[in-house]
């Protein structure tokens, strides 16, 4: 009886958002008389950082400090429509909608500033610190707050913008049935190293090394947070959790957190991540989405690593000690494959 090390890898192409066209999200941006801006969304931040990223996108597009933007995710009764937070679509779809809304609001803001400074709006620029000035003449400037006050109380204008992002519908080729399933893809490759105990069937994670190409990382710390946490969930799907352990027999299903297995803090492993940034042509500032894809490559990589370690090919998830042990016994013992 022994513990066997094995290494496996997997690569994925991950389409951003829902396929085949449509998948809209809307955003509204307006200024308050204080010169601060509010982004209204129905999109939900589950902790993945949608509010932070849309705030950055709005501030960058408007040309104002990020502190001057507030993102209100309101609720789906009162906010502009959103398909939802799933399919890694938040940054790409909602971000694009926010960008469009902020662009329109910026146009109104510049017109209002032009009226106050008595110049052509095309000659104005923002400094990103809350001021609008004449290009080449920074001393001729006005604060966004003063512009907002003038627009609200003097000019009778709302500094606001509307934005929607809708993927054009992909037509079906009548001959081949071919469609264009997505406008952009993220990519990843992950190598997992495991240790399999051929006496108990237990699989322990040893380490993971991964590379993710996800367009421009608009907020690198949030991207890292998604990738680290998502890989944990990949381990969980690969080795631990299921609602129906003997599917299609519904028996022995977990009913609570005590029965529902997930890796604890002692079951994780070192994970080195490289982020590659290839901006997407249709992404907000080149961003794609690091959502679901951060869990996906872990599952096949772990299954491959188990095969490499003991020579058994398990094709049902999760890969429990019971399945590993039965497979090892069925083939008459562990058969470690060539070290990769």
């Amino acid at each position: 009886m022994a513990r066997h090390r094995g290494r496996g890898m997997a690569s994925i192409n991950y389409p951003i958002g829902m396929n085949l066209g449509g998948d809209p999200s809307q955003a509204l941006v307006h200024s308050n008389p204080s010169g601060k801006f509010t982004v209204s969304l129905s999109s939900i931040d589950l902790g993945q950082g949608m509010k932070s990223v849309t705030r950055q996108i709005c501030a960058e597009t408007l040309g104002v400090p990020v502190e001057d933007v507030y993102v209100d995710t309101a609720d789906s009764d009162t906010g502009p429509h959103c398909m939802g937070s799933f399919a890694s679509r938040g940054t790409h779809r909602v971000g694009n909608a926010v960008m469009a809304a902020a662009r329109e609001a910026r146009g109104v803001m510049m017109e209002a500033a032009a009226e106050e400074l008595e110049v052509n709006a095309a000659d104005l620029d923002t400094d990103g610190r809350g001021n609008i000035h004449v290009k080449g003449a920074p001393h001729r400037s006005i604060s966004t707050k003063d512009v907002a006050v003038a627009a609200q109380f003097k000019q009778g204008k709302t500094i606001s913008g509307r934005g929607i992002f809708l993927v054009p519908l992909s037509a079906v080729d009548p001959e081949t049935g071919e469609m264009s399933p997505a406008t952009c893809y993220a990519h990843a490759c992950l190598v997992a190293e495991v240790e399999v105990d051929d006496e108990t069937g237990e699989v322990a994670m040893v380490r993971m090394d991964s590379a993710y190409e996800l367009g421009r990382a608009l907020n690198p710390r949030l991207v890292e947070q998604q990738l680290v946490g998502g890989a944990w969930m990949g381990i969980s799907h690969a080795l631990f959790e299921t609602t129906e352990p003997y599917y299609p027999d519904p028996g022995h299903g977990p009913r609570d957190f005590v029965d529902y297995l997930m890796p604890g803090p002692g079951d994780i492993c070192p994970h080195d991540i490289a982020v590659l940034e290839r901006p997407a042509a249709d992404g907000p500032f080149g961003a794609k989405g690091p959502g679901e894809m951060c869990a996906n490559p872990v599952l096949p990589a772990v299954a491959n690593a188990i095969f490499n370690a003991v020579g058994v090919r398990i094709d049902e998830l999760p890969i429990t000690p019971e399945k590993v042990l039965r497979a090892i016994r069925a083939q008459g013992g562990a058969r470690p494959q060539a070290r990769r």
């Binding site: 680290v228 803090p265 994780i268």
Partner: peptide, 14 residues
């Protein structure tokens, strides 16, 4: 923290 479940972070940052 072994008795505390976290679904999001993967524990490493904690």
């Amino acid at each position: 923290i072994a008795g505390n479940i976290c679904r999001c972070t993967g524990y490493e940052p904690i």
